[in-house]
Design a binder for these strands. Structure first.
Lengths: 242, 242
DNA sequence: ACCTGAACACCGTTCAAGT
DNA sequence: ACCTGAACACCGTTCAAGT
């Protein structure tokens, strides 16, 4: 009883999360910890040593479970990608037409991106292992799912592949921008200061930016995503029926 | 004479580029060297110390001209962005309508992205200093140019801003994917090996990927860019006239 | 005025040694 | 079987000292 409380105090002072019980480490726990560390402190702060201490262990211990830092980053990407397989809305095949299928697919990817804003750029910037695995759909299972969905809905092979290309570049552009205007990497106070400053002095020399700064600052991510997606689907309709 | 030849031999052995004459360093020379170093060795290989030695100097000397590594990376982005201002095709205002204007604009950005494939991801992944500076158009001058071009062609403020958003996310998605399927970060031999391997064994468990692997491997970047851009322009036409 | 050497704190990674 | 300590090579960065 008394011992337990003392332990708690020591932990609080040292800022360690817990002596990590006695269960040994494993790859999944390491990847999950890395992901949450990135979301809390930013990608640039992640190091093997810090991640180790987050898990109550020296950094060198991680090498038992992960070949190295590069592999760790790849594993994080994999973890993010895998999450979508758990998403109920995404997995099912087209039941209400391919348009509904792609809508659900797109929103599923978006949900995942937005739930890991600071790690998502990894998905985009780690080099894909093959040219047909286009970010953010960096998994053969997804590509297969995508192609299968469209195929079964009457897309020719060429049309399905073209749709795959259009779909990935749409997702990548939108989600990367959305995620980068979120948190980004600065404290919220700086943003406010900057905003206040430019409010005061306007944008000298940039009259149109100045005039439209109100509109420019507004966030329309959801609506934009929706509209752009609809537009893409319209385009794919033409592609399919040609 | 003899001395000169000996010097040359020493340089060849040490692999240094040149004692960098006697002209002192300057920021621009540093940024240019950094950019070309990245294109040659990849972003991950760049360090202050290596960059210094590339310039015939100890790494610490760079701090006279650049506040630190982060600022160096920002400077590289700035350098890339600035290049477009030198592009004859981009700067001019609309003379043949806004569609031609945006076509030239888009192709100008694309040219720059493709000429720095390994550095371009920096443009996308460095956090933008303000939410209205959307990658890859991270410069107020460009934003102003863009808005001015559309404004003078009859776009309302709202329509111009919406066009700006659509345009940036289109460019980002396309160019990042195009650049990442280029060089990426692996030697060309690996790619061939991998391709040969999958050729041999097919894609077990992924029948549609297997069937369409031919189409998937083909590169249609140019045509895709063109088609997608045309489509975006069509969409913007509706936006403008609504 | 410009560059360097030495120093510091931190990194990724290996491996023999501890329990 | 799992983790650690010590070690190595390499980093970013500061600053007093050299020319």
């Amino acid at each position: 009883m008394v011992n337990k409380d003392i332990d708690a105090d020591v932990r609080a002072v040292e800022g360690k999360p817990r002596p990590s019980s006695r269960v040994p480490l494993d790859r999944d726990r390491i990847l999950a910890a890395a992901l949450s560390y990135i979301e809390e402190h930013g990608l640039s702060q992640l190091s093997m040593r810090k991640l180790g201490s987050e898990l109550g262990v020296e950094g060198m211990s991680l090498y038992r479970y992960v070949p190295g830092r590069e592999a760790l980053l790849d594993g994080i990407v994999e973890t993010i990608i895998d999450e979508m397989s758990l998403d109920e809305d995404v997995l099912p095949k087209p039941e209400y037409g391919w348009q509904d299928f792609l809508q659900r697919f797109a929103h599923g990817v978006r949900r995942i991106a937005l739930s890991h804003p600071r790690a998502f750029p990894l998905v985009a910037s780690r080099p894909p292992e093959a040219p047909w695995l286009r970010p953010p759909l960096r998994d053969l299972r997804w590509v297969e799912l995508f192609l299968d969905g469209l195929s079964s809905e009457g897309f020719s092979d060429d049309a399905a592949v073209a749709a795959y290309r259009g779909f990935t570049s749409f997702l990548l552009g939108h989600l990367l921008l959305e995620v980068s205007t979120m948190g980004a990497d600065l404290g919220p106070l700086d943003v406010l200061d900057e905003a206040a400053t430019s409010q005061r002095q306007g944008f000298a020399g940039f009259p149109l930016v100045d005039r439209m700064s109100g509109q420019l600052a507004q966030d329309h991510s959801v609506a934009e995503f929706e509209e752009s997606l609809e537009n893409l689907l319209d385009r794919l309709t033409l592609l399919r029926d040609s």
